[in-house]
Every structure is written in structure tokens, then in C-alpha cells.
Amino acid sequence: MRNSSVFSLLKDISAKYHDFLREVPDDQFQLTPPIGGWSYSEVYSHIFDISILTLKEVEHCIKGEGKIKPTAFIVKVILFFGSFPPNAKYKVPKALVGRERKITKEAAAAFIQKFLEELDIVYSQLHLADPALKTLHPRLGYLNASQWFRFMEIHLKHHLKQLKRIEKSF
């Protein structure tokens, strides 16, 4: 998928997160859902924190700070189809455990805004990235700038589904 298409999708998905945030009842935002796991608040904290970290990896690739490494075949399949394998549960990689936290709806909205601002800056430079240079993703292996961009889209979509599961549990 072209970077311009992924960029548009990232904007659209972020708008869905923003719309969903407005719909979540204030008294439920930080509550652990009946199904257990993360609250809405922790999902927002996780997804936009990780998305901003992902943009930093894209910047490293743009600046030529990557390595020339292969991308695993299964990762290429995930990136091609635009989703993680169905019905699979994923744990946060050890390096990122504990970064999620309970935040307010206002902080979540600010996180979205910060992400969108940084996304615009990084996207404007994305064409400068050497596709051969990659940085290490903690679970997927080495990704180049465009692959990191695509991963962000897949990750954001994945957690939108989680928000819907939480919603159904209340």
C-alpha cells in the first residue's frame, strides 16, 4: 500500500478514536471493564504512546540510522493483508510493559492531537527514507520507514476492535 494511502487511513482511524472518545461515558473511561483487561483509558494511553514511539522509529529510518536487515516473511504477510492473524491475542513486548496508564479523557484527546501533529511532520519527510534501512521492532523484527508506517495503521485498527469489545462488556 502506498504511503499516501496509509497516511490518509491513519488520519481517518485517528478521527474514529477521537469520535469514540467523545461517546465513552466519563464514568466508564477509567474503569476496568467487566471482561477484565485494560480500561478505555489504558487503551488510549497505550495506542497513542506506542504510535508516537513508532513515529520516532520512522524518523530514525529517515535519518539513515537503520541497518540493512531482512524482514521476516510472516511480517510481510501481516503488512500485505493489513491485519494481525485473526483470533490471536498479543501481549505487550517486555520492553514496553508498564507504559500504559490510566489517563483522563482530556489527556487522551491531547495524546491524539500530539500524535497527529507529529504524524504530519514525519509524513512530510517519509519520502527521504532509504527503504533498505530498518530499525528493530520488539516483536516483528526489522522494519523500514514505510513498514513502520503500515504497522501503525494495523496497530491502531487492532486496538479499535479492543475498544468495541470493552464497550460491549459494559
Rank of each mutant, 00 (worst) to 15 (best):
R2Q: 12
R2Y: 06
N3F: 02
V6S: 15
F7D: 12
F7S: 15
L9F: 09
L9M: 10
L9D: 12
D12P: 11
D12E: 14
I13E: 14
S14D: 05
K16W: 03
Y17H: 04
Y17M: 05
H18K: 14
F20S: 03
L21T: 01
E23F: 05
E23P: 07
E23A: 11
D26T: 14
D26K: 14
D27A: 08
D27G: 04
Q28L: 12
Q28F: 02
Q28H: 08
F29T: 10
L31Y: 01
G36T: 09
G37A: 07
G37L: 02
W38C: 00
S39V: 06
S41K: 09
S41P: 07
Y44K: 01
I47C: 13
F48Q: 06
I50G: 11
I50M: 10
L53N: 12
L53Q: 09
L55D: 08
L55I: 09
L55V: 10
K56L: 14
E57G: 02
E57K: 05
V58D: 03
V58Q: 04
E59W: 10
H60D: 11
C61P: 01
C61T: 02
E65F: 09
I68T: 09
K69R: 13
K69I: 08
T71G: 14
A72C: 13
A72N: 15
F73I: 00
F73L: 10
V75I: 06
V77P: 00
I78L: 02
L79I: 07
F81G: 15
S83P: 00
S83A: 11
P85I: 07
P86L: 01
N87F: 15
K89H: 08
Y90W: 03
K91H: 15
P93C: 04
P93S: 04
K94T: 10
K94R: 12
L96R: 06
G98L: 13
G98K: 12
G98Y: 13
G98V: 09
R99W: 08
E100P: 01
R101Y: 08
K102R: 14
I103C: 01
I103A: 03
I103V: 00
T104R: 06
T104Q: 00
K105T: 06
K105C: 10
A108F: 10
A109R: 00
I112A: 11
K114W: 00
K114L: 14
K114T: 11
F115Q: 03
F115S: 05
E117G: 08
E118C: 08
E118S: 15
E118A: 11
E118H: 10
L119D: 06
D120N: 13
I121P: 02
V122T: 15
Y123W: 00
S124V: 02
H127V: 13
A129G: 10
P131M: 06
A132D: 12
A132Q: 13
L133G: 11
T135Q: 01
H137Q: 04
L140R: 04
L140I: 05
G141K: 04
L143S: 09
L143F: 05
L143R: 07
A145I: 15
S146W: 05
Q147E: 10
W148I: 03
W148T: 01
W148A: 05
F149C: 08
R150H: 00
R150W: 03
F151C: 13
F151G: 07
F151Q: 14
E153C: 06
K157G: 01
H158S: 08
H159E: 10
H159F: 13
H159C: 14
L160D: 00
K161Y: 03
K161G: 01
Q162F: 15
L163Q: 03
K164Q: 07
K164R: 03
R165F: 05
S169R: 02
F170K: 07
